[in-house]
Simulated scan of single mutants.
Amino acid sequence: MPPVTYPCSRPLRFLLARAEFPVNVIHGEEPFAEDEDWEYGPPRYLRPERVQLAAEALPATSYAQLIRGVDPAELTSAEVYPLGWSEPGALEWGRPWYDGLTQFSEAAARADDVMLVWLD
């Protein structure tokens, strides 16, 4: 399966953490490399059973649910990059990335694959 790149993962991580999402699909959960010479930390991965859980939970949690009740000031005060969350429609920025992450997770689960997560 080809890699998928998610620019500026912080907004999605913030929204998923706020929703108490059961799997850390943004940063991974298991160490993959011990070398600390990575800009945002070493790669991590999700075991196949965690990929399966993510593949079930992502489509069950719509993007509209993730952004419901979010005050743009929350993202600004948490210094979630990119800034400018008070602009009209700014929260819609992550919808295509969330949809892509959902599709990628579902494909990985169907293949019983792990998901390698590496922020570059």
Rank of each mutant, 00 (worst) to 15 (best):
M1D: 10
P2F: 10
P2L: 08
Y6D: 04
P7A: 14
P7I: 07
S9P: 12
R10F: 11
P11G: 14
P11E: 14
L12T: 09
L12D: 03
R13H: 11
F14L: 00
F14D: 00
L15W: 02
L15G: 05
L16T: 00
A19D: 05
A19N: 11
E20Q: 11
F21Y: 06
F21T: 07
F21C: 08
P22M: 15
P22S: 12
N24V: 06
N24E: 15
G28Y: 06
G28A: 12
E29W: 09
E29I: 05
E30S: 10
E30R: 08
E30I: 13
P31H: 14
F32M: 08
A33Q: 07
E34N: 04
D35M: 07
D35Y: 04
D37S: 03
Y40E: 02
Y40I: 01
Y40V: 00
G41D: 03
P42N: 06
P43C: 00
R44T: 00
R44W: 02
Y45S: 08
L46P: 02
R47P: 03
P48F: 14
V51M: 06
Q52F: 10
Q52T: 15
L53C: 01
A55K: 06
E56H: 07
E56Y: 03
L58R: 09
Y63C: 02
A64M: 01
Q65R: 03
Q65Y: 00
I67C: 03
R68G: 12
V70L: 02
P72M: 04
L75A: 09
S77V: 04
S77H: 10
E79G: 12
Y81D: 12
Y81E: 08
P82H: 10
L83P: 10
S86P: 12
E87F: 13
L91H: 06
L91Q: 05
W93A: 06
W97C: 00
W97Y: 05
D99N: 03
G100R: 15
L101F: 02
T102V: 01
T102I: 03
T102K: 05
Q103T: 11
S105C: 15
A107C: 12
A108S: 14
A108E: 07
A108N: 08
A109Q: 09
R110E: 15
A111H: 11
D112E: 15
D113I: 03
V114N: 12
M115G: 05
L116E: 07
